[in-house]
Computed example of a mutant assay.
Amino acid sequence: MVPTAGLGFKPIHFEEALAAPAAGLWFEVHPENYMAAGGPRLAMLEALRGARPLSLHGVGLSLAGAAEPDRRHLARLKQLVDRFDPFLVSEHLAWSVQDGRYFPDLLPFPRTTEALLTMVRNVDIVQSALGRKILIENPSLYIAMDGHEWSETDFLKQLAKRTGCGLLIDVNNVAVSANNLRLDPYAYLDALPHEAIGEVHLAGHRPDPELGEALLIDSHDAPVAESVWALFDYLVASAGPRPALIERDGNLPPFADLMAERDRAAAILATPRKAAAYA
């Protein structure tokens, strides 16, 4: 089965996920939730993997941090990769660990050449340990930072060129960052190295309670916005179909509602418009 559009897996939906008949359906999980020696979570994942392809989407390696990836964490990730043979493994263009302190967020950084070399080193360490290519996801940004030497798209392009990694393009993150930093999201998508894109994410966002639409929050607790669907349609038309995922982490709706969004993504992947249609 060739993966097309998938869903972020939630244990509450286990039975429905296992029984879903959709062609090309796959599921993504955060490996940090399954780094255990045994128990019901691993048994659940084993059953799911027996029916569908899996993707592991990490949040704990802190690849943009100054320190090398934690070897114990990396070893546990390697165990999961070996056991479940995911067709994709991904992480973030962000940091979350410093001097032994762990922060509950994916934090931004100035895109300097020094930061690029650090990221290259850390991605190389991870890919060597896992024995496979990983994908790196673009971040959601909320404020403009000083000190950048590279645009985000050029930084990602260089990272892919120097390490052989691929890219995971979250089009909701593109929409959120473009809104918050007053950028053109379509120009961002055009500037990406399309050949390096291995996966696409779709998710929902919400306006900030105080600032409203001036500041969008990557909340993952709402349906995919129409503006994000439009960006996804454009990216598929420009770069071609890639495995695409619907992310939903809060205010979980019925499984059927998530599948409806997943089916919409699958339909776009199956019949992409020509990029010329946007000219």
Rank of each mutant, 00 (worst) to 15 (best):
A51R: 07
P69F: 13
R71E: 03
L77N: 06
L54P: 15
R71I: 03
R52C: 02
A51C: 13
G65C: 06
G50R: 02
A75W: 04
P53L: 04
S62L: 09
H57W: 10
H57I: 14
G65N: 00
G58M: 09
E68F: 03
R72L: 12
R52F: 04
P69H: 10
P69I: 11
R49C: 10
G65Y: 01
L61G: 08
R71G: 01
P53D: 08
R71L: 01
L74T: 10
A51K: 08
A47F: 02
S62N: 11
L48E: 15
G65L: 00
P53I: 07
S55D: 08
A47L: 06
D70S: 05
R71K: 00
L56H: 03
G60W: 14
S62M: 12
V59K: 13
L56A: 05
D70G: 00
D70R: 04
A66M: 04
R52T: 02
A66R: 02
G58D: 06
P53N: 05
E68D: 08
R71D: 02
A66Y: 01
R72N: 08
A64T: 11
R72E: 05
R71S: 01
R71W: 01
L54K: 15
L61V: 10
S55A: 15
G50F: 09
G65K: 02
H57A: 11
A75E: 11
G58V: 12
G50H: 04
G60R: 13
R49K: 15
H73P: 03
A51D: 06
L54N: 12
L56W: 02
D70C: 03
L56C: 07
L77E: 06
A67F: 03
P69C: 07
D70P: 00
E68G: 04
G58W: 08
L48W: 12
L77Q: 03
A75R: 09
A51V: 11
R49Q: 13
G65R: 00
H57L: 11
H73A: 00
L48D: 13
E68P: 01
G50Q: 01
P53Y: 00
G50Y: 05
L61E: 13
L48K: 15
L77W: 04
E68L: 11
A67K: 07
A64C: 13
A47D: 05
R49N: 15
E68C: 06
H57E: 12
R76P: 02
H57R: 08
A47R: 13
A47K: 11
D70N: 04
L74H: 11
G50D: 01
L74E: 07
G58T: 09
L61M: 15
R72C: 03
A67H: 10
L74R: 07
S55V: 14
L74D: 09
L56F: 12
L63H: 06
L63A: 07
S62A: 14
A67R: 12
P53R: 02
P69Y: 08
E68Y: 00
L54S: 15
R49S: 12
G60A: 14
E68A: 12
L48G: 14
A47W: 04
A51F: 07
L54F: 15
L63F: 11
A47C: 06
H73C: 00
L74F: 10
A51G: 13
